[in-house]
C-alpha cells in the first residue's frame, strides 16, 4: 500500500436548499493527522457527511478527490471501498443485525466472492481488537449499536475503524461523551492505526483528545469555511483563549453559517 491523498477544493454544500459549506479547501495525506475545530454549527459535520456521501447533502460546487479519483461520482459504498471511513457523530442503530455479522459483511465487501474472510480468522481479529478497546466480548453478538451507551457507540466506531483499516478516516467528535478512561482507550485504538498509509481528520471541540493524539495540522472552521490553519499549538491556544481572538483577527461577527 502507498500513502493516499484526499483533496478537497472549493467545496460548497447545501442541505434542503440552504448553503452550509462555502468553499472548503483541505488536503490530507497518508501519515498525517489533522484536527478540525470550530464553534457549534459552523459546518464541521457537514464537511464529513459530504465527503462520505450522505444522501441529504448536495455538493453544489467544488471537488473531492482521493488519489486523483473523483469521489463525488461514487456511491457511498464505493467511497468506503476506495478507502474512506467516517466515524459518525451519531451512529445509527440497526436492530436484528449483530455487530459481528455487520462487520463481517463490511470486510467481505472489500474481498472477491469466494475469497471471504474465514470465520475463525474474523473472530480472532475481532476478539483481539475488542480486547485492545476494552470492549465486552458480548458486544460482538449484540445488535448493531442498539441500546449502546454513548461511549460504547464511540468505541464501536473505532472497532470498525481498526477492523476495516481505511486509507483516510474522518472521526466526527469521537471524543464526545467519553469518560477519561474511555478516551485513553479510544486514543490507543486510533494511535494503533498510525502509519504512512493512514491519514486522519479528527473533528473535535477539546484539546484533551489532542493530548493523546497529537495532530500535525489544526484547522479552524467558521461560516462554512476553513478560516485558519496551524500546528498543534493552535489547538492549545483555542483551549486557553476560545475563539474570540480569531473572530477579531478576521473581523467575523457571527461565526455560524447562518448569515
Amino acid at each position: 500500500m502507498t500513502a493516499s491523498t484526499l483533496t478537497i477544493k472549493d467545496l460548497h454544500v447545501s442541505i434542503d436548499g440552504k448553503e452550509i459549506l462555502k468553499g472548503v479547501n483541505l488536503e490530507i495525506k497518508g501519515g498525517e493527522f489533522h484536527a478540525i475545530m470550530g464553534p457549534n454549527g459552523t459546518g464541521k459535520s457537514t464537511l464529513s457527511a459530504a465527503i462520505m456521501g450522505h444522501p441529504k447533502y448536495e455538493v453544489t460546487q467544488g471537488s473531492i478527490e482521493l488519489d486523483g479519483e473523483n469521489v463525488l461520482d461514487m456511491e457511498v459504498d464505493e467511497r468506503a471501498r476506495a478507502g474512506l471511513f467516517l466515524a459518525m457523530q451519531y451512529p445509527s442503530e440497526i436492530s436484528g443485525v449483530t455487530n459481528a455479522d455487520f462487520l463481517r459483511s463490511a470486510i467481505n465487501s472489500r474481498r472477491e466472492e469466494g475469497d471471504e474472510i474465514s470465520l475463525m480468522k474474523f473472530i480472532r481479529e475481532m476478539d483481539a481488537k475488542m480486547d485492545l478497546l476494552e470492549m465486552d466480548q458480548d458486544m460482538a453478538q449484540r445488535y448493531l449499536n442498539e441500546g449502546f451507551s454513548g461511549g460504547e457507540k464511540k468505541r464501536n466506531e473505532i472497532l470498525q475503524l481498526t477492523m476495516i483499516k481505511p486509507k483516510i478516516a474522518i472521526l466526527d467528535e469521537i471524543d464526545s461523551g467519553l469518560d477519561i478512561d474511555a478516551l485513553k482507550v479510544v486514543a490507543k485504538g486510533i494511535n494503533e492505526m498510525r502509519s504512512e498509509d493512514f491519514g486522519c481528520l479528527m473533528i473535535t471541540h477539546y484539546q484533551r483528545l489532542l493530548n493523546y493524539i497529537t495532530p500535525d495540522v489544526v484547522h479552524v472552521m467558521m461560516q462554512g469555511r476553513v478560516v485558519k490553519s496551524g500546528g498543534a499549538e493552535l489547538a492549545q491556544r483555542l483551549e486557553a483563549e476560545g475563539y474570540d481572538w480569531i473572530k477579531q483577527e478576521l473581523g467575523i461577527e457571527d461565526e455560524t453559517v447562518s448569515q
Binding site: 445509527s92 459483511s105 463490511a106
Partner: peptide, 16 residues
C-alpha cells in the same frame, strides 16, 4: 447510509 459507509453495497445493506 450507515451500512454503506462501511463498504456494504446497497443491496446487501437492504438485505441486512
Amino acid at each position: 447510509y450507515y451500512l454503506m459507509s462501511r463498504g456494504i453495497s446497497r443491496h446487501e445493506a437492504e438485505r441486512l
